[in-house]
Amino acid sequence: MSDAPLLHTLFPNIDDWGELGRACVDTLLMLGGSLLLTVAIGLPLGVLLYLTARGQLRAMPKLYGLTALVVNVLRSVPFIILMIVLMPVTYVLVGTKLGIRGAIPPLVIGAAPFFARLVETALREVQPGVIEAAQAMGASTWQIVRRVLLPEARAGIASGITVTAIALVGYTAMGGAIGSGGLGDLAYRYGYLSYKSDYMVVTVVLLIVLVQALQAIGDRVVARLSRH
């Protein structure tokens, strides 16, 4: 390749670009897998928080209090500590504490409560009058959730997914410190521990590109969903 010498001049310590590519794929896999599960768990959790809050459709102050407590506790533990604390749980869930599989449980457990709060906030933006209208038409709570709350809040939820995805990029990078692989792992092992600062630069640039791309996609989706 003709440009190999140039790359070599710029990044003298990076001799295996393939490894960098694999790290990228790993990061994307971790991100995709954990985002999917985060939404799958956080969305119902957010709906639960919304419905059971005082004055809402299914007000259950005790259940709300308990859910909110769990959510707040998980959100207050720094992610790096959460990962370590959760290791036994991770092992039980996926049979390993390392690699992509080992990273996903703590990522999801760290991000789902955060996303649930974003969903709750988005749902609270739905006009109470629209919900009242659905009730007047004889809608059940489930019908209100499915046909009123989620469609009306969809732009807010999409922007919550964007914010969560970007937070997850940060978490996956942190995961690198305790052996979950991906770009964070490279930055930490080569860039930090081995003083190969060109690794640091390249991984950070790639992470910036990833975050920018996620934000751009998210903005587009939100714009499309709010176009009415």
């Binding site: 629209v130 209208a133 004889g138 469609p151 969809r154 009415h228």
Partner: peptide, 25 residues
């Protein structure tokens, strides 16, 4: 609950602020 919801379907209601679904045509 279920019987009341069935009854409500027989009672139409309109509102000062219309309360339409903004995300739907």
């Amino acid at each position: 609950d279920a019987a009341l919801r069935a009854q409500r379907q027989r009672i139409g209601m309109i509102f000062q602020h219309f309360n339409l679904l903004g995300s739907q045509t």
